[in-house]
Amino acid sequence: MAGAVVIASALLTGGCKTTVNTVENAQPSAQKEMVADKRVITDASLARKVYIVGINEARNDSGVLQIQLEVVNQTRSRQRFTYHVQWFDATGMQVSSTTGAILPCVIEGKETRFLSAVAPHPACKDFRVQFMESTR
């Protein structure tokens, strides 16, 4: 009886633990401009669920800065998290963004995702991204 319960629960939880398989070209032609980053980890569990592989940035012709974060879920189960991007000008002052959105995101087990953000003003030089566990 106990064995049946264990098998049944394994089957039930197995439905949620599907992970992501990927394929891509072996020699990508894109040249990413990677950013040297500084990380402050206060939640080790979250850092494993949303591990930051790297950040690259680019400016368009009109000088608008765009950043792209590559994150990977190192666990085998689907995870929910939120992130928030802050922007700073050349003097280090935070550029006020009336709609500084806290964005929810879902990432599957072992999935790699790209999170993009666009600076609200061409004068933005620096950024900081905050990650938090989903509230539910």
């Binding site: 368009n60 009109s62 765009q66 709609t99 666009v118 609200p120």
Partner: peptide, 11 residues
């Protein structure tokens, strides 16, 4: 936020 980001980036 998303709309403005894409609009700014489009040039």
């Amino acid at each position: 936020e998303a709309s403005v980001g894409k609009l700014l980036l489009s040039g």
